[in-house]
Design a protein around this nucleic acid. Sequence first.
DNA 1: TTAATAAGTAACTGATTAGTTACTTACCAA
DNA 2: TTGGTAAGTAACTAATCAGTTACTTATTAA
Lengths: 218, 218
Amino acid sequence: MSFRERNPEESKQRIIKAAEKIFAAKGLDGARVDEIAAAAQINKRMIYHYYGSKEGLYMEILRKNYNKVIKVGQRATKLKGSALEKVTQVIRQYFYFLAENEEFVRLIQWESLHHSRYARKILPDIAQVTLPKLKAILKEGIQEGVFRSDLDIRHLVISINAVTMMYFARRDVYSFLWQQDMMHPKTLEERLQHIIDFTLHGILNHRQGEGTTYEKNS
Amino acid sequence: MSFRERNPEESKQRIIKAAEKIFAAKGLDGARVDEIAAAAQINKRMIYHYYGSKEGLYMEILRKNYNKVIKVGQRATKLKGSALEKVTQVIRQYFYFLAENEEFVRLIQWESLHHSRYARKILPDIAQVTLPKLKAILKEGIQEGVFRSDLDIRHLVISINAVTMMYFARRDVYSFLWQQDMMHPKTLEERLQHIIDFTLHGILNHRQGEGTTYEKNS
DNA sequence: TTAATAAGTAACTGATTAGTTACTTACCAA
DNA sequence: TTGGTAAGTAACTAATCAGTTACTTATTAA
């Protein structure tokens, strides 16, 4: 009707951007295709044209977000230094990744409540590529004698993920209870320092390496 | 039509039980009033009769579940022993409370994704009654010199909640990745031991109390 | 130039669902 | 015993929404 230039790539991008925001905010069930179409300034029909279905679009968004976290994991492989420094760096990078990717944090939670029905198709990529790298760093530290040898690495990975993720997953509640902006740079850095401090005390071998100290700010 | 004895109390209870299960499984938006009515073996009209609206019923369920966790917190006040023993006991009780109350864990997550819209009305009860008690135990340990004095108690409470809660919040994922039943008694006890071990190492003052040990199984 | 194809639109459809209406039936206090 | 009230039922309604239909318009390869 009215003149509008065609630009499939840009149209697709607009759909993705709008869908990511809305799926993260309301979940697969709560999101409305009409709402995504309106936010993307595109006719609803085009969503079906490019992505087949609401679920197809959702999968695209989920995949995109998991790819982002896989990239963070890949950066972790290239870290130099002692196991202790590497753990600190990995936590720092993961922490700020979560801080900057609210959509990722929320999408994972929606998935989790839906028994990770769609995430299951993507999870093996992380389990087979990213997780072993993190575990290798922890094993390295154990072999060096810097970390305790009685650590259960699988549980440790859950716990590190927990203390890092929970802050963002529940930030509305903490904001409400503490009457404070949990995303303020100073508050973020304070939380990160606590996480590093708590985690390192939790894993360091205090018997042998009694003289061992670690940089709080690194 | 068909003969059916009247029993308002039992009817209400049937509604509550069905609603708790379904709201926990699908959230406020995902749950269907017709589905709750069918599960409760009651006419849908009665739900509106007793609880006014879908939201009214949901609030009732939420309140009921928060009351349960507040009770766990009250038990924590009555604990005897050293600060270290108390922390261990509180973690154990909270852990098994979560293990036995899947609905609570899920309801909190749904709320969290909805910015705790309804939970906000209940949260102050926990913030003003339960949390101070936990904080008091931690402060006690710090004053005794058993726990490190540089701990940030607010962050610590988040972290303890995180390592305890995350296991249950993500149990589908871990079950899938580990190919293991995360709710098996042995697996549960293993996780609890890790949490206690990790947390206590995270908070114990290793410099002063070098001779200090703690019971792993208590 | 043109015909095949891809991009785009508006209006519709069928299924679902929270809440309501108009009704009947059981219970119990006076 | 009876009349008011609470418990209970079936069928309806208005709104919502994923996906479709039937169409027009732009782009491009031969």
